[in-house]
Amino acid sequence: METGSPETTGAAGDEPVWRGLPPGLLRMRRLLLVLWAGLLALAVGLPLGLFAGPPWAACALLPLTAAAWCWPLLGRNWRSWRYAERADDLLISRGVLWCEETVVPYGRMQLVEVTSGPVERYFGLARIQLHTAAAATDAAIPGLAPAEAERLRDRLTELGEARSAGL
Rank of each mutant, 00 (worst) to 15 (best):
P16M: 03
V17L: 09
R19G: 01
G20R: 11
P23Q: 06
P23G: 07
G24D: 06
L25R: 15
L26F: 09
R27A: 15
M28D: 07
M28S: 13
M28P: 14
R29V: 06
R30Y: 12
L31M: 15
L31I: 13
L31V: 15
L32N: 13
L32Y: 02
G38D: 02
G38T: 13
G38Y: 03
L39T: 05
L40Y: 05
A41I: 01
L42G: 04
L46Q: 03
L46K: 00
P47S: 03
L48P: 01
L48A: 08
L48T: 03
G49D: 01
F51L: 15
A52M: 08
A52S: 10
G53P: 04
G53L: 08
P54V: 15
P55S: 13
P55V: 07
P55D: 10
W56V: 04
A57N: 01
A60S: 14
L61K: 00
L61R: 01
L62T: 05
P63L: 07
C70I: 08
L74V: 07
L74K: 00
G75H: 07
G75S: 03
R76S: 02
R76N: 07
N77L: 15
W78L: 04
R79V: 01
S80W: 06
A84Y: 05
A87F: 02
D88N: 12
D89I: 02
L91T: 01
S93H: 10
S93Q: 14
S93L: 12
S93C: 09
V96T: 14
L97D: 14
W98V: 15
E100G: 11
E101S: 14
V104N: 10
V104W: 09
V104H: 12
R108E: 08
L111S: 10
V112K: 09
V114S: 02
V114C: 00
V114F: 06
T115W: 07
P118C: 04
P118H: 01
P118I: 12
R121M: 00
Y122P: 04
L125K: 07
L125G: 05
A126N: 05
H131Y: 15
H131F: 15
A133M: 10
A140D: 11
G143V: 08
L144N: 03
L144S: 09
A145P: 07
A145Y: 01
P146T: 00
P146Y: 00
